[in-house]
């Protein structure tokens, strides 16, 4: 049984911890709301752009554009999107476990790492790091994320890698975020959509090559942008939940410690009264 003083000391420090986690929870909650609404608002754009490209499936011959070329896969790039900061529960760990498991099945893997956590993990693995990006903040502009997309495209077009995969944490809801891997290069139209496609004669303005040439790089940019927004929404949600759990745990502990400290105090007083009573009795006898 720890002493009364010991109990009080722990109680004080846990109250301080709760104050900190409570503050972090409040901050994460407000960032979370913003990040969630922006991820939901931007999803339709990517979905539609993808479905436009799927409509173009029959025209998207592998030789029509450098981003469609399919090569035998010898080297793969993984664009790994993690958070800069921790205290997000298992989010980064889960994503990296999925990404590294995936990487083991590929012949030769290089990483484009976004976020400090991912960069550190890739370094620990001593895996090749093609490029690294940090400090995107809560609301990255597409100008910032397009730089990252450009790196991925250059690696692919130059032939240094034969596939590019995105690894990010997809936001489902506040309590659920899912590690997700998706190939972004080369772009291959989804098969089922091609089957469903009636033999349409599309009109292109100005012409198919120009239109494909502007839609395809846009899809890569948008996929990267979206993946980063998904990760930010996941990060803020995971942090909010982690901090809420920490605050709840601190509250439970405080309750237990308060009880223990009161018991100790009561025990001490009882003991003191007993001593006084015994003393008085002895005096009366004497």
């Amino acid at each position: 049984m720890p002493s009364e003083r010991e109990l009080r000391r722990r109680l004080r420090s846990i109250r301080n911890i709760r104050q900190v986690t409570k503050a972090m929870q409040t901050v994460a909650a407000s960032r979370m709301r913003r990040a969630q609404s922006s991820v939901l608002a931007s999803r339709p754009y990517e979905d539609r752009l993808r479905s436009v490209l799927n409509d173009l499936g029959p025209y998207a011959e592998p030789e029509a554009h450098p981003l469609l070329v399919r090569r035998p896969v010898q080297r793969v790039a993984i664009l790994l999107v993690t958070s800069d900061r921790g205290l997000v529960g298992a989010m980064n760990t889960n994503l990296m476990r999925a990404a590294f498991r995936f990487a083991r099945e590929k012949p030769d893997v290089g990483y484009v790492a976004v976020g400090r956590k991912g960069i550190a993990a890739v370094r620990r693995l001593r895996a090749p790091l093609i490029a690294e990006f940090t400090g995107l903040g809560d609301r990255p502009s597409s100008t910032e994320t397009n730089v990252i997309a450009r790196v991925a495209q250059e690696e692919y077009v130059s032939g240094r890698v034969d596939e590019v995969h995105l690894a990010f944490t997809r936001f489902v809801n506040t309590l659920r975020q899912v590690p997700t891997l998706r190939r972004i290069l080369p772009f291959v139209p989804e098969e089922e959509d091609i089957d469903a496609l009636p033999p349409l004669e599309y009109i292109f303005e100005p012409d198919p090559a120009t239109v494909l040439g502007s839609v395809l790089p846009r899809l890569i940019e948008v996929s990267v942008y979206q993946a980063i927004l998904e990760s930010i929404a996941s990060e803020q949600s995971a942090r909010m939940v982690a901090m809420r759990n920490a605050t709840d745990n601190a509250t439970d502990l405080i309750e237990e410690l308060t009880l223990a400290s009161n018991k100790a105090r009561q025990g001490r007083i009882t003991k003191e009264m007993l001593e006084i009573a015994t003393g008085a009795e002895a005096m009366a006898k004497g």
Partner: peptide, 19 residues
């Protein structure tokens, strides 16, 4: 405002993709 000039789209238009 298409890349090649303004164009009007009515129902039953032929499939079209334009910048």
């Amino acid at each position: 405002p298409g890349s090649e000039g303004y164009l009007g789209i009515l129902p039953h238009h032929a499939p079209l993709l334009t910048a």
